[in-house]
Design a protein around this nucleic acid. Structure first.
Lengths: 155, 155
DNA sequence: TTACATGCAAAATATTTGCGTAGGA
DNA sequence: TCCTACGCAAATATTTTGCATGTAA
């Protein structure tokens, strides 16, 4: 029941923020937010549109884009760039969970990670440059190690 | 004379790589590469096109895009994303000089920085995840600190 | 009721590509 | 000479927007 509880919390959080900002919580916005909560990957606008239409066939791509902008402004989701032409989106309702991405340049696979040392270092760097850190993006691009380090073997 | 020397080295490096790859070094490519060497900012394709046309009025936007792809493949330039819709480009002929960007979200100003600790940490993180780090992008977004830390004051 | 949100379609942006010609090696 | 690269214009891809209508509060 953990998953259900987390999802409801996320939607509650969406509703709370909407009210806070004096904005309406519509059926479309709920479906789009819920779809992002359920997503275990990093869909782009079009992929999201497809998924959302499985629930509500009438939702347009314009609404998807408008809702994504809206959710981003509310800081409920984050926009990412993995180097291909389109923006990708993911839920970021829990501010503690600021992870980053390791992208396999051969397979396109994306692994998320979190590293406290990195978080601390970035705040320190920004501070040394005379800035207050508001957001940051980090993407690592690489290829899988073979053998030695992990003892893994390709078939 | 330092600047002149560095610029020539960069263009030499371009010519060497072109030959290595069996590709032609054309007038357009030289102008585009030189313009990127001279750029002290991070121009997008259209800004680059404007600058390049001041030197050779006939260079088309298609050639700018094709040359940017080409130079990126040769790892002579790097593509960046600062969160607005377009890709930005910068010279990266010297592999040691792997810097990152601190972006002022109020003014749009971009400050470059390099931090050895960060470089080491990223390699370590990738390794721990089972990857060999090939490339990485880091952008910090923030607002200027007031007072305390730097003793700077707004007017 | 009444502003804000939506769907649709067109527009705006950003980038890529087909094709016939030009030009570097 | 020969093949790559070019300019042009059209195509594609992604995202935004104007407008009339719908709907949450």
């Amino acid at each position: 029941m953990n998953l259900v509880k987390r999802e409801q919390t996320a939607i509650d959080s969406l509703e709370a923020r909407c009210h806070q900002m004096g904005m309406r919580i519509t059926g479309q916005r709920k479906v789009i937010a819920q779809t992002l909560v359920d997503a275990e990957d990093h869909p782009d606008a079009e992929q999201l549109h497809e998924r959302v239409r499985e629930v509500d066939h009438t939702i347009s791509i314009a609404t998807v884009y408008r809702t994504l902008q809206f959710l981003e402004k509310l800081q409920l989701i984050a926009k990412r760039d993995f180097g291909d032409g389109r923006a990708r989106f993911e839920i970021s309702m829990t501010p503690r969970d600021h992870h980053h991405h390791m992208i396999d340049i051969e397979s396109g696979e994306v692994v998320e990670f979190y590293n406290q040392e990195l978080e601390d270092l970035k705040i320190r760097i920004a501070d040394e440059l005379g800035y207050d850190l508001v957001d940051h993006h980090l993407e690592l691009f690489g290829t899988r190690l073979r053998g030695e380090t992990l003892g893994e073997q390709e078939p």
